[in-house]
Design a protein around this nucleic acid. Structure first.
Lengths: 233, 233
DNA sequence: TCGGGATTAATTGTATCCAAAGTCAATCAT
DNA sequence: ATGATTGACTTTGGATACAATTAATCCCGA
């Protein structure tokens, strides 16, 4: 089913099996390849990936540290199934951090970057017009990635934001499938551009908080079906 | 020098050597028992702690994920020595998160907790009067811990705050040795109490940001000797 | 048939082993 | 004398072996 990670004979491009195993498992989990709650045993994973238990174990324990897997009552791990409250909390933290990030960014952004962001939104809008929701999703991701690029010299902050975003993304697979969410998202990005052009830090922070708050609503709705408001700030 | 972690024959209190090793190394690093930059080899650590290389390796790799150790150019790891910019960034993130936390807390705090915080500050003040700076430090920690207790139902946020605080603390061993820092810190807590009693979320957030910003100044000054201002918000 | 206890199977924890990769030093050639 | 090449030694990566612990099954008795 899955191709083996380690081909012992080949001159591996000097990236260790340990790393590959970790990255692979993480990617699988983030893209929802395992059913949440499904039991993961070291040996079966080892067999499946064609490696020994050693790298698997290290990967699982590191993923536990990141909150992607949980130790099972009995033994082994399972990919964690977050409750509504937990997902909500992640969004809340994203709200705080990304809001702050935009506050910071607005003081340092250049014309070129603004243009680049415009172009991405335009592509997104075009995709929306022809109902290519997948593409909308892709361009939205590009939009955020571009913004994130502007805080690359704050690696810790960036790391937190990226991790939380990835973590949430696995629950959002089809959030934007709904036209509604796609529309809101694009509009949110337009508002962000406006705030950035105004160069108003407070406005930037507030707009970004609202934007993520909307994403939170869409995600929670698509997952649980109803909204229990929590307020932005 | 150090007592062995694992006594193989004794009925270990059901906590694995793996965990103990990890916790032990982490505690050692956070309390500055290793010189930053000092090379850590698996074998020597294993010998020192009286365990095999296996739990050591897992611990080191988990600590790498947390940023407490860095892979060395050559081989092995060393405990990471953060640059001024890196420490600064940690403080910045604390500012954001703890500021937000106080904003949240002020809407949910009860009279009893306020009294408890008052009592801690009073003890801190008394200790200050008789120059027991260690005790001031201890009570200040209690103060923050008490506040943190109020967001225990937001475990991710709490976890981030606690981790960052611990991470920083290892650089702050003697920040409060200076009377100046101790005074500022107590005064900051008094301001926090005032903001909490007023129940004003915006004020709470601002006061906490300023408080941590002061701690940042004291820490950076004691470490590097000069302040390059970064602004609170 | 149901429950309890014991034996067996499964799975994780820890240690050790072997191989690969790299470092260091010494020696030899220029 | 200096620089390169080689060989030994150190250290890590990954696999496996073995022990310990827990779960599952089966058997026997009530």
């Amino acid at each position: 089913m899955k191709k083996p990670l380690a081909s012992k004979k080949s001159k591996n491009n000097s990236v260790s099996v340990r790393e590959k195993t970790y990255e692979f498992l993480k990617a699988q989990m983030l893209s929802g390849q395992f059913r949440p709650g499904e039991r993961l045993t070291e040996e079966s994973l080892a067999a499946e990936l064609g490696v020994s238990r050693t790298p698997i174990r290290e990967a699982l324990h590191k993923l536990e540290l990141e909150g992607l897997v949980r130790p099972l009552e009995t033994r082994g791990f399972c990919v964690s199934q977050d409750s509504r409250e937990e997902i909500d909390e992640i969004f809340e933290i994203r709200t705080i951090l990304e809001g702050y990030a935009l506050r910071y960014v607005c003081k340092n952004i250049g014309k070129d970057t603004l243009k680049k962001l415009d172009a991405i939104i335009e592509k997104s809008e075009k995709a929306y017009q022809v109902q290519k929701i997948d593409a909308v999703f892709k361009y939205n991701t590009q939009f955020h990635d571009t913004l994130h690029g502007l805080i690359s010299h704050k690696p810790r902050l960036l790391g937190l934001i990226v991790d939380l975003r990835q973590y949430i993304l696995r629950y959002r697979k089809d959030t934007l499938q709904h036209i509604h969410g796609a529309r809101r998202s694009i509009d949110g990005h337009l508002k962000i551009m406006m705030a950035l052009r105004l160069g108003d830090p407070d406005l930037c922070e507030r707009i970004m908080r609202e934007h993520i708050h909307e994403a939170r609503e869409d995600a929670l709705f698509s997952l649980f079906g109803k909204i229990k408001d929590g307020g932005v700030s």
